[in-house]
Structure formats: structure tokens, C-alpha cells
Design a protein around this nucleic acid. Structure first.
Length: 109
DNA sequence: GGGGTGACCCAGT
DNA sequence: TACTGGGCCACCC
């Protein structure tokens, strides 16, 4: 069993993790995108990821400039390349890899 | 209740 | 492209 981090996950953390878990392989989202989707700020998302990101594809969440999470550039880059994500130097090519969750508005309901 | 910290974002230079 | 300053939100002491 993976050792759970100290402190219990908050409601915001659950929303962030749930969303990140839905990001398909080969695609990425920025902290800002995730923040907007859960109705919070990018700093808060970063905090959540640093504390509870271990259980989700955290490498699929990158900064607004396409660079992977601070302190995990190498690890994230290795995983992302393994998923076939296009790179521009050390940064993800957001133009082709950026992803957004499907909005219920567009679908039948 | 107040202040510090952090896997951030944006605009300006 | 790199650096700086201000703003943003949640969590911890």
C-alpha cells in the first residue's frame, strides 16, 4: 500500500485529483486550466499536486509555458515522451498536446 | 486572527 | 528567452 501523505485530502484536492485522473495519455493540462475547471487558483492546484499528486498522472499537468512541474522536469519529461507527447526543446508543445475536459453543454443530455 | 509558504499566472521590460 | 513585480488561492503554524 502506498503510504498516504499527512493530513486528509480536502474537497478541493479531491476535485483536482479527480480531474487530473481524467486527462488521457498523450495529452496535458496546465495548472491554470485545472484551477479554472475546479474553480480555484493555480497556486492552490500546485499545492494540491505537491501533497496528493502521487496517485494521479501528475506529469500530465504542466505550467502555462509548457514546462513540467518544478523539481520533476526529468521524470515528467520521460513519462510524457513515453506517451508520445510532442516537445519543443524542454517544453511540451501545448498547441497540440493541450487538453480540456468534455463539457456537458456540447453533448446530448 | 495574522503571517509565511508554495509542483502558479500574467504583463512589462 | 530570461528576469521582475504584483496578484491569486489554499494550507499550516
Amino acid at each position: 500500500m502506498p503510504s498516504p501523505p499527512p493530513g486528509l485530502p480536502t474537497e478541493l484536492a479531491e476535485r483536482v485529483l479527480d480531474l487530473v485522473a481524467t486527462i488521457p495519455a498523450g495529452r496535458v493540462m496546465t495548472y491554470g486550466d485545472v484551477a479554472a475547471a475546479v474553480g480555484s487558483g493555480p497556486r492552490a492546484v500546485g499545492t494540491v499536486m505537491s501533497r496528493y499528486g502521487g496517485g494521479v498522472p501528475w506529469h500530465r499537468v504542466v505550467r502555462a509555458d509548457g514546462r513540467p512541474a518544478a523539481g520533476h522536469e526529468v521524470e515528467a519529461g520521460r513519462l510524457l515522451r513515453g506517451e508520445g507527447i510532442a516537445f519543443r526543446g524542454d517544453r511540451v508543445d501545448l498547441a497540440s498536446a493541450r487538453w480540456s475536459p468534455p463539457g456537458r453543454r456540447a453533448g446530448p443530455d
